[in-house]
């Protein structure tokens, strides 16, 4: 499983960051990241083929985060503390994560992935949204988000 170790070290921080963007909480992001790689580990152990590792990891991370959020429903503000973010930045981060939470699941996942500079092609792979809908959905979702933040 040398392959696994390489993937783990290469993608750990990216998976963590994506999870943090969804959850706004360091401990939960670490937990989800561990779960994502546990999932990968078992897939590789079963010799299941994964074609695009990065897209696969982002997909599993998004799914696990969204189901975690469905379970915990609301997260109180103080949970957004992150050791790697200063206080002013943390406030801004809270604002955007709070606004994202008010959006529908599709927009929320898409915008979070978008912030990771993922190509449209990869977004299709991760979310299953049609390529021809991505541009329109993003454009609308960004405007909606701005509206939510101004309220």
């Amino acid at each position: 499983m040398n392959n696994f170790k390489d993937i783990y070290n290469t993608y750990y921080k990216l998976v963590y960051r994506l999870a943090f963007k969804f959850l706004g909480n360091h401990d939960n992001a670490v937990d989800i990241t561990q779960d994502v790689f546990l999932h990968l580990y078992s897939q590789l152990k079963l010799k299941r083929e994964i074609y695009n590792t990065k897209a696969w990891l982002y997909k599993v991370t998004s799914n696990l985060c969204m189901s975690f959020l469905n379970k915990t429903k609301r997260i109180t503000k103080h949970e957004y503390e992150n050791p790697a973010v200063d206080e002013v930045d943390n406030e801004k981060n809270i604002e955007v994560v709070e606004a994202l939470k008010k959006m529908n699941k599709r927009d929320r996942v898409l915008l979070t992935l978008y912030s990771e500079d993922i190509s449209y092609k990869e977004m299709v792979e991760i979310t299953g949204i049609k390529f021809t809908s991505i541009g329109k959905t993003l454009s609308r979702a960004l405007k909606k988000l701005k509206h939510e933040m101004e309220r």
Binding site: Y16, V85, L100, L142
Partner: peptide, 28 residues
């Protein structure tokens, strides 16, 4: 501008300071 502001405010996590823990084969 909308895109720039969004990406900036959500990407405030400095992942360089995040430590990669050793992988555990079981749930923590």
């Amino acid at each position: 501008k909308l895109i720039f502001d969004f990406k900036q405010s959500i990407s405030l996590v400095n992942i360089e300071s995040i430590e990669i823990p050793e992988f555990k084969h079981e749930k923590t």
